[in-house]
Amino acid sequence: MSARPFLADALAHKGRWLSYRWLILRRLSQGLVLAGFLAGPCCGVWILEGNLASSLLLGQVPLADPFTFVQSLAAGHAPALRAMLGAGLVTAVYLLVGGRVFCAWACPINPVTDLAGWLRRRLGIKSGFTPSRNFRLALLPACLLTAWLTGSLAWEYVNPVTGLMRGLAFGLGWTGGLVAAIFLFDLFVVQRGWCGHVCPMGAFYGLLGKTALLRVSAPRRSACTDCMDCFTACPEPQVIRPALKGKGTPVILDSNCTTCGRCVDVCGEKVFRLTHRFDRSLEEDASPAPPLT
């Protein structure tokens, strides 16, 4: 393609707000989760007590991370009722909206890896290698096996996701170094390395999202100009192709889609929109979809 800058079409056709809308809303959501946990220790306003592993919303609603919960089961402890209720509640929500919505809208590591991804693109860093995206699917059972063998929540000794949120609310220690390491890994070694290839927590939430109702669709895919901006912006670009370029449903059904909505933002032709799983409607454009070169 020509030396057309990323996002140029969207900015020209839709203006600034519609080109950044979902990104801004997502940062707001991440900020709210963080503020919910930090408002208590910082200002004495208790919105969310605890941390991502398990918490109490407004002093009433128990919430618990289902991945930590499953590790606990694997390690050989049947958690008490409150943890079960909390994990059940969180599981139900993510079954509905898609597990990896957690990754894009709540996870504290996401802004870090997003920054690394953005910087990598801006600096034109092409170094590193591309390991299999299935590595995380191997790491997930490995974590549970380790939990079983050690009788311990082994992954929680190093998990940067729960670790960072816990660190921010209770004292960071060396977790800051771990987060910095992930940033450098994403920046120099593997593009979208942590979230896209390694994180077993993301893999777990991905499995939760197999039947999610909330999905991104490409109903105006016939208007696609092959500018590739959506592939550039997407943290899991492999999920787009079947919906955008395939003959079947325009709905992105791959559970690795984090529903971040960035493709909706960056598309100048308004090809994508957030919808539900069963919305298979296609808006036919006058011109047929040009083939991908």
Binding site: G50, N51, L56, L153, R166, F170, W174
Partner: peptide, 27 residues
Amino acid sequence: DFDTACVRCGLCVRACPFATLNLAPAG
């Protein structure tokens, strides 16, 4: 058994009225 059962959520730390408890930072 504690290592198996504790999810490191810190709700006990928050519940302690005397700020006795802490969650161990990494390292």
